[in-house]
Design a protein around this nucleic acid. Structure first.
Lengths: 219, 219
DNA sequence: TTAAAAAGTTAGATGCGTCTAACAAATTTT
DNA sequence: AAAATTTGTTAGACGCATCTAACTTTTTAA
């Protein structure tokens, strides 16, 4: 049974491994907001448990077992988010902080039951995939809205980064997952995009926003 | 924000104060299964925070603030138990261990929402009262079944001690809260009781069991 | 009322997760 | 290739929550 702290390290490594090829101690310490020696120290312990591969001065990686454990924690996090959002009436901007605490709860059955009650969902309220019970995860490779052409019609599928700020912004713009978005024009100067979507015509989205919106192109 | 450990100390003191008049360090250390010096050490810290009253060699008590905080934790525990039992399909013998972990979650809103979804329940699945948001608690003074007379008819309202074993026993006997129980006879030798209740005629309950069943007498 | 027992206290140690300061290795720049 | 920069390591400390061993105070019993 890893401590909550160790679970957070596994989760951080899991998440970094999706973004970076080679994970450094510096990356890890930044992700968790701890000092580099702290991360270094913990990594040695995780190695003892055979959850990470690590040699002095070399990049980090999760072992198969470590990755499986991390995926289970992410699974618990995302099932909880879904549960809070779909069955308890929370907004997608409220669920992260609670799920962050609930993901450490030791009870197979609690998360099994959430899964059942939700009808075995495959994605969380932000469109991120929910890992399976065996620790596998089906990553979808969505395009960023910022990479689409003028005139394209796309469906909003997921978000790159689930910050409160982005989620509040999207709430104010009435933009939600599943929305069909038409790209009216792209401003060459700052790469801001003019779009229309259900009930909202001619909305301007900055590059900062559009590169965080993951979409599927309709052909 | 007290640590989870400190919350557990507050809860233990709260619970002991219902059972004992004077709380000793020994009582506390037994309740939490820690050594006496450990309890002593923590009590000093709780005193610093003004959550407990304490003088060397004197008995312990919660301050008003300490009691309020403890009651809120118990509230979170019991709301969670109720949520798991009524809305997620868990048995009354399964809810304690999960609630023990969830009671430490920092989120007013989560427990507010449970409360609403449950329709503002006043007792948990074992019949214990749920403290109000302001930290007050309405204790009911039920009689033990073991204290009732032959021939009496009573309603099972709550349990004295919610051990897995007792709960499993009651499950096997089909005995649940709200059951109307008739006392057929009491065996003077070992104080075991013969009872009947809905669909179950002539069931023998040992003194160990009957003194853990809290009932309301029908007059 | 004194001796024995129980309860409580103090001191010092341990593991966890964290830090800073000082140093070493690896990488990048000039 | 040497110097500068970045990255990683080691050492030593700290707070939290825990322990055991040794001691003191309080309570109980002889």
């Amino acid at each position: 049974m890893p401590s909550q702290t160790k679970e957070n390290y596994l989760k951080a490594l899991f998440s970094l491994s999706k973004k970076t090829q080679e994970i450094s101690l510096t990356d890890l310490s930044k992700e968790l907001e701890v000092s580099i020696p702290t991360a270094n120290n913990m990594v040695k312990k995780l190695k003892e448990h055979k959850w990470v591969n690590y040699q002095k001065y070399k990049p980090l990686s999760l072992t198969d077992e470590g990755r499986r454990m991390a995926a289970i924690i992410v699974r618990k996090h995302r099932l909880t988010e879904m549960f809070l959002s779909r069955l308890m009436g929370f907004g997608w901007e409220e669920v992260h902080d609670i799920a962050e605490q609930m993901e450490h709860i030791k009870s197979e059955k609690l998360f099994e039951r959430m899964d059942e009650l939700l009808g075995f969902p495959t994605v969380d309220p932000h469109g991120s995939p929910i890992p399976k019970k065996d620790g596998t995860i089906e990553e979808r490779n969505y395009k960023k809205l910022s990479e689409c052409q003028e005139g394209a019609t796309v469906i909003l599928k997921a978000l790159e980064n689930n910050s409160q700020e982005l989620l509040h912004f999207l709430n104010r713009k009435n933009l939600m997952l599943g929305a069909t978005i038409r790209i009216l024009s792209i401003e060459p100067f700052d790469l801001s995009i003019f779009v229309s979507y259900y009930g909202n015509e001619g909305v301007m989205l900055s590059k900062e926003v559009s590169e965080r919106l993951l979409v599927e192109q309709l052909d």
